[in-house]
Design a protein around this nucleic acid. Structure first.
Length: 221
DNA sequence: GCGACAG
DNA sequence: ATCTTGTCGC
């Protein structure tokens, strides 16, 4: 898959924060996607004792969810983990995996936040903008915002708010299980994002694309 | 100053 | 994220 560089990754945390504020204005929060036939899932794991980053991108057919392609990239992370700057640590490896991907997916599900972020530019937005692809943030915990606990049934949800803004949805993807934090990455509406997450799950907490990427990234070669 | 803090 | 055993629940 081809994509043209948006910027350098050789930045200090301070420069990264300023860049996020600029790029956030370019995020599209409405549906700009056609029929979804393929879904990509993205996740990054690390070797024991702070080993190299292992990025995995999988592509599944939709809505049947059959694995069509998978790419795995191992390379050391150069940027530290700083809450709010996750993409500067993980995106370089993920983008390298996308370069090796043959299928250009219709939508990507990312393990992390989209606009449910202090500067509205989490890793799902960063990847979506860089690749110019619709993207959804599927996080297992909250980075920012306030919310009420959603009901116990699959599909129950409550808004994730930051002041007056609704920045995402707290979604019960499985009965009696901790909710997921869904947010817009790029080129999708929040309603569509929630619908896709529920449609790509199979009774597990995580939707199949993200779950599969997570499993593969932690598997030894 | 103190607590919170995606992966 | 990773370090770690058994254990409670569906």
């Amino acid at each position: 898959m081809l994509a043209s560089p948006l910027h350098s990754w050789a930045l200090t945390p301070r420069e990264a924060i300023r860049l996020q504020a600029e790029l956030a204005s370019r995020v599209a929060a409405t549906d700009r996607l056609g029929t979804i036939r393929t879904l990509a899932g993205v996740d990054v794991a690390y070797g024991r004792r702070g080993g190299p980053a292992q990025a995995v991108v999988v592509v599944l057919s939709f809505p049947d969810l059959v694995l069509l392609e998978q790419v795995r990239v191992t390379r050391p992370a150069t940027f530290p983990y700083v809450p709010g700057l996750l993409s500067f640590r993980e995106a370089p490896a993920v983008l390298e995996a996308f370069e090796r991907l043959r299928i250009r997916p219709d939508l990507i599900l990312v393990d992390g936040q989209g606009v449910a972020h202090p500067r509205r530019f989490g890793i799902a937005s960063h990847l979506g903008l860089w690749l110019d692809l619709p993207a959804i943030g599927v996080a297992k915990s909250r980075l920012c915002g306030t919310f009420a606990e959603p009901g116990p049934e699959r599909g129950d949800w409550t808004p994730l708010r930051d002041g007056e803004d609704v920045i995402g949805v707290v979604l019960r993807s499985r009965r009696n299980t901790r909710p997921l934090f869904i947010s817009i990455g790029h080129r999708v509406s929040l309603a569509t994002a929630v619908g896709v997450v529920l449609a790509s799950g199979r009774g597990t907490r995580l939707p199949e694309p993200t779950r599969m990427a997570d499993r593969l990234s932690k598997q030894a070669h």
